[in-house]
Amino acid sequence: MASLQGYVDHRVLLILQDGRAIVGVMAGFDQKSNVVLSDSKERVYSMDEGVEEIPLGLYLVKGDQIVLIGELDDAVDQSVDLSTVRAEPLPPIRY
């Protein structure tokens, strides 16, 4: 059973269908993969400048918009200097 229980109270990376990447602490979820993220920040990637982190606060994301939920390894995440990262924004989901 693929459950999100293991991610509760952990810092996670959420990738949405429009290509957005959001990091936050997963406060809760349900059977339809709707997710509650607290202390969330959107990470905007670009080829010209480093990653921009926009604070968003408490977020309820609909499950049908979610592509992937990744458990963030805090140690590795801290060691990454976001200002040096250059990348294309993630492509949106195309059916």
Binding site: L16, G57, L58, Y59, V61, Q65
Partner: peptide, 15 residues
């Protein structure tokens, strides 16, 4: 309609 919602942003104090 719920099916058209992408996300909701609520006040932080709510949690």
């Amino acid at each position: 309609r719920g099916s058209t919602i992408k996300y909701l942003r609520v006040p932080d104090t709510l949690l």
